[in-house]
Design a protein around this nucleic acid. Structure first.
Length: 1083
RNA sequence: GGGCCAAUAGCUCAAUUAGGUUGAGCGCCACUCUGAUAAGGUGGAGGCUCUCGGUUCAAAUCCGAGUUGGCCCA
């Protein structure tokens, strides 16, 4: 780009972004930036891989924008940043999508289609989705290594998963277990607890009476899963709970029922008993050992038959005040807690249900039925058997498969586990080694989650995943999970298993001949491989890994470790990761678990945890319900920089972000302001041939004016504030600081103040100083903005620097604070002056005097010395900004005449002094009006509310001036504290009217010049006719001023020019102008 | 059902680690200004600080119990 070249009049994000994309491509901006930092200190960032189903939504967009802003920031700070993006491409979600595409209903369809074909289809689908995501991310302006993303389906990445798992196995943390798990009966696989999604559904709610075997009466249980009754093995009670025996009467018949004392009324109400009477009070302990009869003993002849079954036992999971009856039907073949307790009690694990949710032959009468379909029949049978006390329905939340939305069932199957509960202490210690933003996410939420976490079931009975690298002896049944295999009830690891860690090891040990360089590790290939050692042949366990395991190894998978071990030692663990809060149960957790199990360490040092993107009305976005804001629409409406700025202006620490079109518009306005600030000095610099390399700020130091020094001081404190905010991981606060600087300080104040210097036609030191100042300000501002809005920053940078600096702004260093230009006092001074100016403008408006008209004087009544200092040091600047002929200062210990006073109360003083009457005293003080600002006068004015011995002290009040007639006054303050009052004396003199009218004329001529679209330098002839003779005289006194300002070389009658009638303060004027250039050119 | 977080102007958020008369930006309305300006300036409307209790002379702030939303867990 050529320096100070012509730029668009209007900020046009789409055209600009298109140009910048082209430019980046042309100069290999990304590659050059990476190369530029290749000698820097390493910074290891790991990308949490998005799942490759569906397009980028606003949440993903926010996430990637956050990553981009921090990676760019770290780069600008000099780090050599690892920025390899990743994609999570295996797993059930993709399988279900592909099943939908192919019209499959269940696993049988897949088997018929062919496992290998299905895996191929899944791979194609994932790659297809990846392309879409990748295009989106690039389109958002995110700079990562798009040429070489890590993919969880690549051989080297799958090897990283194998390696991690094998390290965990070496540490004895891998075992095959016979456990109660959540099973999706449609997908026919176990799913992890964190894949279970809870939804409100209507289920049966039944109360069942179990006949006691060796005594009179019945115990009553409650369940919402009638289909688990066939597997009932025992009933649990709370040992310390209170229970009652109730003699209940219905239709003339009496029954003796045992339930928790706290629940007896509600249970009897459910059973619609006519009357009842408590006949016995017992503790849970007294119920222990009571035996009962299985209510479906005949229907399920193969039911549990073991010593001690069908008796009452104590269990911790019983609550005598919760739902139900205080007696809990327990089936170790189903529920997780039942299973644990059943195993403690040494019961066989009876689970008459297969992985597809269909009852097996063990279920007797119900064999072959899907369990949920059997509920009605079971309820009817219980009723027939006289065991049903009540039957209804209940609305409650029940677990569903996260992908296909099928209700899950709890069954006991064989699964492979990483027994992270064995290293729970280590996990909790490792958490301490990580720094989280926000802190509470680690100390409360994550720690709680880890403390509660059960062993990690890593096996899935599916196809599209990383195969378990486990081989077991062929003659044993270690295959896909089968229900009910009581012989494995101890659930310990198989001593004879072989766990393979790398492809090389695989090639060495398998019987078949394979090439480790080219072997694909998916099921299609590895299922065929066997290992024969010491006369035993081992075959592979057919399961694949839980997809969370894939992502859990990203910290070394990103480095292609173990295949490539060149960087692992130097880089691992990750310096920084950044994801949304749902990842506490996901990636934050799986990485901690895997890192600890495999290497004994947490794989990341710093976590930035952001929230979710919500709809403008606060609802969660949901693609399936079509409740969403599409990032592409946001870009279409406002452009990429604006969308990024909006997203990045939100707090990234834990809080959710509400999308807002207003917020987007605001950001566009800010960028437009920046654009205007940027393009304002360009024509002047171009005209004067300003060369920032020749004329640096340091060269013009002696010619800098106060306002220049001030804006430079503000630039230093803005950099300090931004750097601190970035280091605190609050890029939103950093952006706020930058916007305030650009919009408030540079655009509204500095540029307003220097424009006249830039208009000067002759060369001047002051103009050069202003050029150098604004150049430095803009040059550093675009560097500060670059991580947020990389496109507009690039264009501005290119226009400012031409070929003199880096090819791209993103190679710049993060601007450092230059102590030389720091000036806190000046910043504070100007803050005071701006407050006074603002008050003065207000007072002017009250007095009906426009800024264009000078006023004879402005009186500043200062409340404190700091204001006095500021005004004394910068009187001229203040007079200029307020267009006042004179500034008069009234110091704090003086009074300006003709003023009245009131008092403002300070509640922090009144409170302790007056107690509960403080409010009353405050009101009296606020309403008081006195001529003399003394405590005595004030006390007199509020004497009604004061008691005899009470007085008002200095600390309690501050006096406030009341505006006298003829002068308008407005209080000014800083940070909410009053610092004084600015009074504008708006009286008129001939001289003032002369200048006022002259300025009115100038402004109208300027507007007419603009209407003709004249160049700034264009000379004109001016024709001015004013009806009012007095005003005409006043204006003619300022003829020279007018001619200079509007560049009127000639004052004469204009025949054919641009002519207009104006009404100025009720005086009508006729103005005509004509450019002289045309005439000159023709001569 | 449990845990964590949030709740302040129409919207987004502040309110100085530890109570003291609730503020800003955006949006809206009116007026005004304009040779960088789809800008700017001034004013206005808009708040039982989610509810109910408690502590205190005094609570947006501290404590307790709820309500709503988000996430997590069961």
């Amino acid at each position: 780009m050529s320096r100070f070249g012509e730029v668009d009049d209007q900020y046009d994000p789409h055209e600009l972004e298109r140009r910048v994309f082209e430019y980046w491509d042309e100069v290999d901006a990304y590659e050059q930036t990476v190369e530029h930092r290749s000698d820097g200190e390493s910074f290891f960032f790991v990308d949490g891989p998005p799942y490759t189903s569906g397009a980028a939504h606003m949440g993903t967009t926010w996430n990637k924008s956050l990553k981009d802003v921090y990676l760019r920031f770290f780069r600008m700070q000099g780090y050599d940043v690892t920025d390899r993006p990743g994609y999570d491409m295996h797993g059930l979600p993709i399988e279900t999508r592909v099943e939908e595409r192919l019209g499959f209903e269940n696993k049988k369809d897949i088997e018929e289609y062919g496992e290998e074909n299905f895996i191929e289809a899944c791979k194609d689908y994932a790659e297809e989705q990846l392309e879409g995501l990748q295009e989106d991310f690039q389109d958002f302006g995110v700079w990562m290594d798009w040429e070489d993303p890590y993919k969880t389906v690549s051989p080297e990445y799958m090897e990283a998963a194998w390696w991690g798992f094998s390290k965990a196995a070496e540490r004895g943390l891998v075992e095959k277990g016979h456990r109660s798990i959540s099973q999706c009966p449609r997908c026919e696989t176990a799913i992890a607890n964190n894949e279970v999604e809870y939804e409100d559904v209507e289920d049966p709610s039944i109360y069942v009476k179990f006949d006691l075997a060796d005594r009179a009466g019945k115990i009553v249980i409650w369940t919402t899963t009638p289909w688990t009754i066939p597997a009932n093995t025992f009933v649990a009670v709370d040992e310390e709970g209170d229970y009652v025996g109730v003699r209940a009467e219905k239709d003339g018949e009496e029954e003796l029922l045992y339930v928790a004392e706290a629940k007896h009324e509600s249970v009897l109400r459910e059973g619609r008993y006519d009357d009842y009477e408590i006949v016995e009070e017992l503790t849970g302990e007294e119920l222990l050992g009571w035996s009962y009869e299985h209510p479906l003993a005949e229907e399920v002849p193969d039911h549990v038959d073991a010593e001690g079954a069908f008796e009452v036992y104590a269990a911790e999971y019983v609550d005598t005040h919760g739902d139900g009856t205080g007696l809990v039907h327990s089936a170790p073949g189903h529920g997780e807690e039942d299973f644990e307790r059943g195993r403690e009690l040494g019961f066989p694990i009876f689970c008459p249900v297969g992985g597809d949710g269909v009852y097996t032959e063990d279920a007797g009468k119900y064999a072959g039925q899907f369990v949920k379909d059997a509920d009605d029949e079971i309820i009817a049978d219980l009723d027939d058997n006289g065991a049903l006390l009540a039957s209804g329905t209940v609305d409650h939340s029940y677990g569903h498969c996260w992908r296909c939305d099928t209700g899950i069932i709890q069954i006991v199957t064989d699964q492979w586990f990483i027994t992270i509960t064995d290293v729970k202490d280590e996990l909790l210690e490792n958490i301490e080694d990580s720094e989280w933003h926000p802190e509470w996410a680690r100390d409360n939420r994550f720690q709680d989650f880890v403390e509660e976490a059960p062993d990690w079931n890593v096996s899935r009975q599916r196809y599209w995943g990383t195969p378990l690298p486990v081989w077991t002896p062929e003659d044993r049944d270690d295959g896909a999970a089968t229900a009910a295999s009581p012989e494995h009830a101890d659930g310990r690891a198989d001593e004879e298993m072989i766990v393979i860690g790398t492809r090389e090891e695989l090639a060495e040990r398998v019987d078949q001949d394979i090439d480790p360089e080219t072997v694909d590790l998916h099921k299609g290939t590895v299922d065929e491989l066997t290992i024969t050692e010491d006369g035993t042949t081992y075959s592979r366990v057919p399961d694949v890994f839980d997809v969370w395991l894939d992502a859990s190894v990203a910290s070394w998978g990103t480095l292609n470790y173990p295949e490539d071990d060149s960087r692992f030692d130097e880089l691992w663990p990750a310096d920084f990761i950044l994801e949304a809060h749902d990842q506490t149960r996901g990636w934050f957790w799986s990485q901690l678990g895997m890192g600890t199990a495999a290497l004994g360490d947490i794989p990341y040092e710093e976590v930035l945890m952001h929230g979710h993107a919500l709809m403008p009305d606060g609802r969660a976005m949901s693609k399936s319900k079509d409740i969403l804001i599409d990032p592409h629409e946001a870009i279409d409406r406002h452009g990429r920089d604006v969308m990024r700025m909006f997203l990045l202006s939100n707090n990234p620490q834990g809080d959710d972000m509400r999308f807002s079109w207003d917020g987007m518009q605001t950001m566009e306005n800010h960028l437009r302001t920046l654009w205007n600030v940027f393009r304002f000095p360009l024509p002047y610099m171009r005209l004067d041939g300003f060369d920032p390399q020749e004329v640096t700020l340091e060269d013009v130091d002696g010619d800098l004016e106060l306002i220049d020094e001030w804006v430079l001081a503000r630039l230093q404190s803005t950099k300090a504030e931004m750097t601190a905010a970035f280091e605190d991981r609050r890029q939103d606060k950093a952006l706020d600081a930058l916007i305030e600087f650009v919009v408030d300080d540079v655009s509204r104040f500095y540029v307003q103040a220097v424009r006249e210097r830039m208009w000067e036609e002759d060369d001047s030191a002051s103009k050069e100083a202003a050029y150098a100042t604004i150049y430095r300000v803009l040059r550093e501002t675009v560097a500060l903005l670059a991580p947020y809005a990389p496109f507009i920053s690039e264009e501005i940078y290119g226009t400012l620097t031409g070929d003199e600096e880096h090819p791209t702004v993103h190679m710049c260093d993060w601007p450092e604070i230059d102590a030389y230009w720091e000036d806190e006092q000046l910043e504070a001074d100007v803050a005071h002056l701006r407050a006074i100016e603002e008050a003065g403008a207000n007072a002017r408006q009250q007095a009906g005097r426009k800024l264009r008209w000078p006023v004879p004087r402005v009186v500043v009544a200062a409340d404190d010395e700091r204001v006095v200092e500021a005004v004394e040091r910068h009187t001229d600047l203040l007079a200029d900004r307020l267009n006042a002929r004179e500034i008069e200062l009234v110091s704090p210990d003086e009074r300006w005449g003709e003023l009245q006073y009131s008092a403002e109360a300070d509640m922090s003083e009144l409170g302790p002094a007056f107690g509960d009457r403080a409010g009353q005293v405050m009101n009296a003080l606020n309403e008081a009006r006195i001529d003399d600002p003394s405590l005595g006068a004030l006390e007199e004015a509020v004497s009604d509310v004061l008691e005899d011995d009470e007085s008002i002290t200095d600390e309690m009040v501050s006096f406030v001036t009341q505006t006298p007639d003829g002068v308008a006054g407005t209080a000014f303050g800083l940070n909410g504290d009053d610092r004084g009052v600015a009074y504008v004396d708006a009286s008129l003199t001939d001289d003032i009217e002369s200048e006022g009218y002259a300025r009115e004329v100038i402004r109208r001529v300027q507007e007419m010049r603009k209407e003709l679209d004249l160049d700034v330098e264009e000379r004109i002839a001016l024709d001015l006719e004013i009806d009012d003779d007095r005003v005409a005289d006043l204006v003619s006194e300022r003829e020279a001023l007018i001619r200079e300002e509007v560049r009127a070389d000639e004052l004469r009658t204009v025949e054919d020019g641009h002519r207009k009638e104006w009404d100025v303060e009720d005086v009508s004027m006729e103005i005509a102008i004509e450019p002289l250039a045309a005439a000159e050119a023709s001569e």
